[in-house]
């Protein structure tokens, strides 16, 4: 019998094994011109990671992504706290945020490019507009739904505003806010990569676009694999923290 705490890890391994098997099967079916097999792809990726040129692209994407994530989280928190603290303004603006979430933001890309010019700022702006909405929506809901008892207790104890935020508001709202940041992470990554696919000269997105142009299947597969590995592992890590935070509160 497997111990209960190991169950999620075992499930994760089963899913990974299934995906690898499906990939190998698809490869047998689709053939060598269309895709590369799992083992080959990992080997090609390992080889890519030894070249300086690839690290240049990787560094460029990482820089844009980190800036965008930082901006999305900070701005999202500010918007979320401001709207969440005031019930009526959150009623007014929540549908606006939700509507913006459902818009294909890629159509706004030309405007971003015209406003920021080609290069790093445009990528960062594009990543940020993807990630900011979930952070703002979740923060707003978390702050709005705080139990009034917490605030009353703080007032009875005459906590100064600084302690109110640090000792009461943040710990109580943190699990929900963290869920928003987790989703914001994923969307910011998508936004940054999309931003690199057009009008960029460097970065993983640019590398993917040139690889399509050159029909370089091993390169497409290896870059895709790297992105998926990164996104899936960070997201799994964030999900574990997320669950812990939620459990601690309840």
């Amino acid at each position: 019998m497997i111990a209960k705490s190991w169950q999620p890890a075992v499930n994760g391994l089963i899913v990974i094994a299934m995906l690898l098997a499906a990939w190998q099967l698809l490869f047998e079916f689709a053939g060598r011109q269309a895709m590369t097999a799992p083992v080959e792809t990992f080997r090609y990726l390992a080889q890519l990671l030894t070249t300086d040129a690839f690290w240049g692209h990787l560094a460029e994407t990482s820089r844009a992504f980190l800036f965008a994530l930082l901006l999305a989280v900070v701005l999202g928190l500010v918007i979320g706290f401001l709207l969440g603290a005031h019930r009526f303004s959150s009623e007014v603006f929540e549908p606006v945020l939700v509507a913006f979430y459902s818009v294909p933001k890629i159509t706004l890309y030309p405007i971003i490019l015209l406003a920021f010019g080609l290069g790093l700022p445009a990528k960062i702006a594009f990543g940020t507009i993807h990630g900011i909405v979930p952070v703002a929506i979740f923060t707003m809901a978390a702050v709005r739904n705080l139990s009034p008892i917490l605030l009353k207790t703080a007032r009875v104890l005459r906590l100064p505003p600084k302690d109110l935020v640090v000792a009461v508001l943040l710990p109580a709202a943190l699990p929900e806010i963290f869920t928003g940041i987790r989703i914001g992470f994923a969307l910011t990554l998508i936004g940054t990569l999309l931003g690199e696919m057009f009008g960029a000269q460097r970065g993983l997105g640019y590398l993917l676009m040139t690889a399509i142009g050159l029909q370089n299947v091993p390169l497409i597969m290896a870059v895709t694999l790297l992105i998926v590995l990164f996104a899936a592992s960070v997201s799994t890590f964030l999900t574990i923290i997320d669950h812990r935070l939620h459990r601690r509160v309840s």
Binding site: Q7, P8, N11, G12, I14, V15, A30, Q33, A34, M35, I183, F185, A186, L189, I190, L193, L194, M197, L208, A211, I212, Q215, V217, I220, M221, V223, T224, I227, V228, A231, A232, V234, S235, T236, T239
Partner: peptide
């Protein structure tokens, strides 16, 4: 469902567009 849970949890973290080049080749 329990086995698939990690897949659903991480699915939307993966930039699906990254598969577009592959789909074009296919």
């Amino acid at each position: 469902r329990q086995v698939l849970e990690p897949l659903f949890a991480t699915y939307y973290a993966i930039p699906i567009y990254a598969f577009y080049p592959l789909l074009i080749v296919l």
